[in-house]
Every structure is written in C-alpha cells, then in structure tokens.
Computed example of a mutant assay.
Amino acid sequence: MSYVGPDFDPPQPRRPRRRPLVVALAALVPGALLGWAVYAAVGAPGDAGGAAVSAPGSPSASAPARDDGKKPTAGTSPTAGTTPTAGTAPAASPSPSRSRAAARGPLAGKVVVIDPGHNPGNFRHTAAINRQVDIGTNRKECDTTGTSTNSGYTEARFTLDVAHRLRDLLQRQGATVKLTQDGDRPYGPCVDERARIGNTAHADAVVSIHADGSAAGNRGFHVILPEAVHAGAADTRPIVGPSQDLGARIAGNFVRVTGSAPSNYVGDGTGLVTRKDLGGLNLSTVPKVFIECGNMRDSKDAALLTSGAWRQKAAQGISEGIVSFLRG
C-alpha cells in the first residue's frame, strides 16, 4: 500500500493517544524492550549500525488516510475484468498424521484467517478492481494492485509468500488456518469480501499482510488497528479492544524476531497506527489487524523484503504475536 498519490484521502488530524492500549502494551514491555534493545545494539539488518528506538506506546491516529492498496502502476498492460471464481482459496490439506499432531497443539480449536493483501492477477482486471464497494463509512475501490520494489518484486508475491510461511507455523501449533485468497482466482477478493471471509469463519484472529509503498528513506513496519466506527454496515466497537491487544502483541514479537524497527514515518515510533478508512477493518466483526512489514520503495527495506530468510522471520514474528494473543 502507499501513502502518496492523488487518489488518496488527505491526512487526518492527530488525535489524543488512547489510554486503554497503554495497559495492553504494558504486558508486552519486557519482550518488546528486549527486541528494541537488540535493535539498538546491533542495528537493523543490512545497516552498519542502529539508532535507538523508544518502546511502543499507544497507537497513533496520525497516519495519512489511504485505501486498502494502490492504483495500477505504470508499465502494466491491464485488460478488462472478468468474473472471479466463486468461493475463497482453501488452505492446503495437511497429511492425516500432521492433522492429528496439529489437533493436539496449543491452538487446537482456534481459527485464524490470513489475508494476503492484493492478488497477483489484479493488474489484469483493473475495471473489476476499480469498481466501488461499501465500506461502511463511504465507498472505495474493490481492491488495488499493490506496490512493488524498484526491481519489480510485487507486494502481491510478498504477501502470498509470507502467508504460506505463517500458515505452516500456525498449523503446527494446531490452529485451523484459512486464506482469503491463494493466487488461484483471477483477481480480488474485494475488501468487503475479505472481511466477510473472516466473519463467516468466526475467526479468533485475522491478520492482513501488506508491504508499504512510501517514499525512499521511510523505513520500518507498522501494525494498523481498527478505529471505533459505527456507520452504515460498519460497527467495529466490539472488536477495537481485542484488535488492539492482537496488534500490540504482533508488534512486540515482530520487532523481537526480525530485528526491524517500528516505522519512522507513521505511528510516532510505536509501530501502531489506528485508522477508520480501511474496509477490511471497518467491516470485520472479529479481531483483525493489518501489518505493513516494511517499505518496498526504500532500498534497505526492500533488501529485507526480498530475502526468503527475512520473510521467514517476519512470519515467525507475526505467528508468535498471534499465538500470544490466542493463548492470553
């Protein structure tokens, strides 16, 4: 996703920090501080050294408003949209022995939905993904193409790769894992359908995986939390609290496992941002967060995002945050 471009909403004013999340983050301070200390001591991967980063605080509402992704980038050759295949992408079926082992895991009985942002085929179906859908507060595009690194590694490829790694880790813990898409449909699903998939599954947690497309020099990850919204079909009030808890746990574990720092351009150094303009969050009735794992347009972040070893760490950090949330 990208924070820049003529088609995105203007920046929203800052709002006072919310006290309830401070309590949730307090429980994460020991682990998170350890991760921050490691980062400060050895620096971000690929850097000669690291700058000290403060421990996370409450979420910031200072992020410029943007949609669930980006417009098609120049250089593509999109064609008119076609009708997507029905249903959602099923997770790969584990072997019987693996299923029995998973059923005995600590997450047995828990359902996790992983939402890989965008779809590799979106750029071929611009007419379809540009159609407007209701997100409660207003109407937005069905979906977008996502961003890419300067060398052409796409966000859609990145999100699917991390989703597969995350699915494997969670299944080993005994969780039932569903993906909103697995690159096996022409485009989409639209943001409203992505929310419905998690709702219909009665998911205990949903994580939407993304990578940002901000300006060079903007670095780090951030987790996007739902703001309290009650408008039209959207009512996030019941999920704001648990989603904040889920997001804080993912942020703390992500920095500890990957060594990456929180975003230096949104979130006031906390790695947490609250937004009300994303249909995938507005329409969710179960705990859900987005994670922007890094900035694809920054060369240092891009070096991490294109590394299979780092993507495994990213999946591990997200997984440990989810496990921590589900186990309380």
Score class of each variant (00 low, 15 high):
A302G: 01
G105S: 13
K313M: 01
L326C: 00
Q171F: 05
P59S: 15
G43C: 07
P262Y: 04
F221E: 00
Y187H: 15
N199E: 07
T274G: 08
P242L: 07
S319M: 09
Y39K: 12
D7N: 13
A315T: 03
N122A: 11
T274L: 14
R249M: 12
S324M: 04
G217A: 07
Q244K: 10
D67S: 13
P13Y: 05
G294R: 05
F325D: 08
G267N: 10
S284Y: 00
L305V: 03
F325A: 03
P238R: 02
A32C: 10
L305D: 01
L160V: 03
A201N: 04
R100A: 13
V257M: 05
A24F: 01
A163L: 03
L107H: 02
V22K: 07
R297V: 00
R15A: 14
A51S: 15
Y153R: 11
L246Y: 03
P96N: 00
A51V: 15
S99I: 05
G5Q: 05
T76V: 14
G87E: 09
V223Y: 05
S99F: 10
V255W: 10
I129Q: 10
S151W: 06
K110D: 10
V229Y: 13
S148W: 10
G109F: 12
S284I: 08
S58E: 15
A203G: 07
G46N: 03
A128C: 03
A91T: 09
M296P: 04
I318S: 06
A314R: 13
A251P: 11
P186W: 08
D184G: 12
S284N: 03
G317Q: 03
S299D: 15
I224M: 07
A108R: 12
A103D: 09
G87Y: 08
A89S: 15
T149N: 10
G232V: 07
L166I: 06
V273C: 10
T137D: 05
I239R: 01
W36A: 14
R327A: 08
K140H: 12
N119C: 12
P64M: 04
V223E: 07
A51T: 14
G279C: 07
A205G: 02
A175G: 01
T82R: 11
A163Q: 02
A205K: 02
A309V: 12
D212H: 01
L160D: 09
P16H: 08
V273S: 13
R172H: 15
I291G: 06
R196L: 13
D301S: 00
I129C: 09
D212L: 04
V286D: 01
L21S: 11
H118E: 15
T73V: 14
